[in-house]
């Protein structure tokens, strides 16, 4: 009995620390930030174009925002390799859908598909935060935000990425009117009702602020604007509607086209 007891005791005194494993880490963080805001009949999806790893800027222009269909735009942020490959798979699924059903997938269906695709890799996740923006079947502007394993919800606005903590409280204040009250007797604030010009300047302010205070944000930004069917574009294309330094282009329809229009606005950000 004494022997029996001694044996495990002696064993327990051996060094039990495992060798220092240099296990391959399949993830990286490539910085940057994304943001989306929904309006009544439009949706704005934006991201900066810097890609970094640690203190190194890998490139000053890498995309994070992608046009999926005529009424859906997806922004990805986190591990860039996962982001790019996730977008590639989403686009492939959308193509298959169109072949099978002879129509593009609707926004809320894309959102649900993204959730299943993300959860499908629950135990080796895509290290990516996704924000999906676009126009819903009923013509309303919509934003869906996701966590890396697929939890999602529809919201009026969302910021994600390196500067999420800088931008989101600002958006709470300016989009959701948090901690603000209307003057007595005036109309109540309704989130998601702001005019396009206001939303655009909030997006620009968010990114210039984040650029100022966060080293991983900067270089440039791309703002995608998805307009609902038959919506006027005067508040975007009209004389003097864009801020200084902005360049705009209209992205052609991807499919048959049902009247939604997508515009891409680019603007430089500080490079330091």
């Amino acid at each position: 009995m004494a022997l029996y007891h001694n044996q495990p005791m002696a064993h327990a005194q051996e060094p039990t620390a495992a060798p220092i494993e240099h296990r391959f880490n399949p993830y990286s963080d490539n910085g940057g930030s994304i943001l989306a805001i929904a309006g009544t009949d439009f949706s704005v999806i934006a991201g900066d174009t810097r890609q970094s790893e640690g203190y190194n800027i890998q490139t000053r222009y890498a995309r994070k925002v992608w046009q999926l269909t005529d009424k859906a735009v997806l922004a990805t942020n986190g591990f860039a390799a996962d982001g790019n490959n996730f977008v590639k798979r989403v686009k492939q699924r959308l193509e298959w859908y169109e072949h099978a059903h002879h129509k593009p997938m609707g926004l809320k269906s894309i959102a649900r598909m993204i959730q299943t695709m993300l959860y499908g890799k629950r135990f080796f996740p895509y290290y990516v935060y996704n924000i999906l923006g676009g126009i819903e079947e009923d013509g309303s502007g919509a934003v869906y935000s996701f966590d890396p394993v697929g939890s999602y919800e529809r919201e009026a606005c969302r910021a994600a990425g390196a500067a999420q903590s800088l931008i989101q409280p600002f958006l709470d204040n300016q989009i959701y009117f948090k901690n603000q009250q209307p003057e007595p007797g005036s109309q109540p604030f309704i989130p998601g009702n702001l005019p396009l010009a206001t939303v655009l300047s909030l997006v620009v302010d968010s990114f210039t602020s984040a650029t100022e205070r966060h080293i991983e944000v900067g270089d440039g930004m791309e703002i995608y604007i998805v307009m609902a069917r038959d919506r006027t574009t005067d508040d975007l294309l009209g004389e003097g509607k864009l801020q200084k330094g902005m360049e705009i282009e209209e992205l052609g329809t991807l499919g048959e086209g049902q009247g939604e229009r997508t515009f891409l606005v680019r603007q430089a950000l500080k490079r330091d």
Binding site: Q58, R60, A62, F79, N85
Partner: peptide
């Protein structure tokens, strides 16, 4: 890692 990017100038490792 499968990380990809393009730029007019590039460098790996110490060169970065």
């Amino acid at each position: 890692l499968g990380t990809t990017y393009t730029a007019p100038t590039l460098a790996t490792g110490f060169g970065a």
